[in-house]
Simulated scan of single mutants.
Amino acid sequence: MQKKQNHLSPKKAWLEKPFRLTVGEMKNPLSVLKGFFNTYDLLNVNDHIGKLLNSFPDADPELLETIEFVQDLERLIEANHFLLRKSTKKVRTSQ
């Protein structure tokens, strides 16, 4: 996995900004997580990722790199799932 560089050119700094999030979602990123996990549970996520990985040809020279990236993406999704559940429990117990 490549390490993120601290000093970015103006173009790279611009590319580090979110492209898909709306201004409202940037102000409340938890809404994105809630929406995602209201649509997909972890089983659905794993199914979709499996289908995605199976669509790559075995001879693809970048397959190993892609698998490593997808594994990191899976960990990111699972961590966000955990954080969302944890924050939801805190809200319920504080009410």
Results as ranks from 00 to 15, higher is better:
K3Q: 14
K4Y: 09
K4A: 12
Q5A: 08
N6S: 14
N6C: 05
H7D: 10
H7I: 10
S9W: 12
P10F: 12
P10Q: 08
P10V: 12
K11R: 10
W14Y: 15
E16G: 05
E16V: 04
K17Y: 08
K17G: 11
P18R: 12
F19H: 11
R20Y: 09
R20L: 12
R20H: 12
V23I: 08
G24D: 05
E25C: 00
E25N: 04
M26P: 00
P29C: 04
L30Y: 09
L30I: 10
S31C: 05
V32W: 06
V32M: 09
L33G: 02
K34Q: 15
K34R: 15
F36K: 08
L42S: 06
V45A: 08
V45P: 03
N46V: 03
H48Q: 15
G50R: 15
G50F: 13
L52I: 13
L53V: 10
N54K: 15
S55A: 14
F56V: 07
P57M: 08
D58R: 14
D60Q: 09
L63K: 14
L64N: 15
L64C: 11
E65P: 09
E65H: 12
E65F: 09
E65Q: 14
I67W: 02
E68M: 09
F69W: 13
V70C: 06
V70H: 01
V70T: 10
D72F: 09
L73D: 03
E74P: 00
R75C: 03
R75A: 09
L76K: 04
I77L: 07
I77K: 01
E78N: 03
N80P: 01
N80Q: 02
H81V: 00
H81W: 02
R85H: 10
K86P: 00
T88Q: 06
T88P: 00
K89Q: 01
K89C: 00
R92F: 06
T93M: 10
S94F: 07
